[in-house]
């Protein structure tokens, strides 16, 4: 089918630039195709920005904007502002960086919660209300936010509601030595991202998004998704469990993943592949669990192991 080839082309193009991360790239692309947003939590220099740029570059005609979040960043710096134009004696709206196809929100946890929340509406409903006027955002609108997991000084941890807006949270992590050598080789002349040419049009992406929604999802797997998400509720180590939005996101992302797997239906393997990325960042650990050194991803992985999978 046409959809598969588009998806595969997209994936190969990004993979040629961001070395050694095929799994994460597939997940991030699936997240985009599913209409969700992704939060990359990683150390500086692991290729978060490159990944975002590469995705933007491969899509012909897609706009890419980047916002570096700082403590003094204001909501209007993201959404845009109306400025009085003395010539026309009128207020003219200057759209902010949110009016784009792909938005890289770098170090999102450095901005104040007020600014972070400015993104809430845009991410949830693909629209921005500025000074009472509703502005529709593009049909792709894909937010890639990043945050640094180690540095906490001068940061404002994302509110739970904001976290829930992200369909997935992925981690790039360090690549193997061989891959790192390849990265060095790639960048001797110029950055490979600059030479990346588009492999898909905006329209193709939009049709991919539509196709993802058509991927078949059996009744039994719906139960499986609900069981996975439901297992977080009532778990003694979890203070705040995953919401139905998590189930919804899990379904949508695994549907999108099916496209990359060149299938027109979802299998349990696909659900398991993205479940941790989709669920883990939404749950809040109980204090004694947090201080015993476990993290949410470990607990979700354990839950996946405990729940019988349909065979």
């Amino acid at each position: 089918m046409m959809n598969y080839t588009t998806a595969v082309r997209l994936e190969n193009a990004v993979c040629s630039v961001v070395r050694g991360q095929p799994k994460v790239i597939r997940h991030v692309l699936a997240c985009m195709i599913s209409g969700g947003h992704v939060l990359l939590e990683d150390f500086p220099g692991t290729g978060k920005t490159t990944l975002a740029k590469a995705i933007a570059r491969t899509i012909g005609g897609a706009t890419f904007k980047r916002v570096q979040f700082t403590p003094d960043l204001l909501p209007s710096d993201i959404l845009g502002v109306s400025i009085f134009d003395p010539r026309s004696q009128d207020f003219r709206f200057h759209p902010g960086p949110v009016f784009t196809d792909i938005l890289l929100a770098d170090e999102i946890n450095r901005a104040s919660p007020r600014t972070q929340s400015a993104l809430l509406e845009s991410m949830g409903e693909r629209q921005a209300t500025i000074e009472g006027i509703k502005h529709d955002l593009g049909s792709i609108f894909f937010v890639i936010a990043t945050q640094n997991p180690v540095e906490f000084r001068g940061t404002y941890p994302l509110p739970e509601a904001q976290m829930d807006r992200f369909a997935m949270q992925c981690t790039l992590g360090y690549v193997s030595a061989a891959e790192e050598v390849a990265i060095l080789a790639d960048q001797t002349d110029s950055h490979p991202v600059d030479s990346l040419s588009p492999v898909a049009t905006r329209e193709e992406i939009v049709s991919l998004m539509a196709a993802a929604r058509q991927v078949r999802f059996s009744e039994e797997l719906r139960h499986y998704v609900v069981a996975l998400v439901g297992a977080t509720r009532g778990h003694p180590a979890i203070q705040l469990a995953a919401s139905p939005r998590a189930s919804l996101a899990l379904m949508k992302v695994s549907q999108a993943l099916a496209i990359f797997e060149e299938q027109d239906f979802v299998t349990p393997e696909m659900i398991q592949a993205v479940a941790t990325d989709v669920i883990a960042h939404r749950i809040l650990l109980a204090p004694d669990a947090k201080y015993s050194g476990v993290n949410a991803r470990q607990i979700v992985n354990e839950l996946i192991e405990q729940i019988p999978v349909p065979v």
């Binding site: 778990h235 180590a237 979890i238 650990l285 109980a286 476990v294 470990q298």
Partner: peptide, 10 residues
């Protein structure tokens, strides 16, 4: 087991 569950340990 109860303690491990509460602490979220494996």
């Amino acid at each position: 087991q109860e303690r491990n569950l509460r602490l979220g340990l494996k």
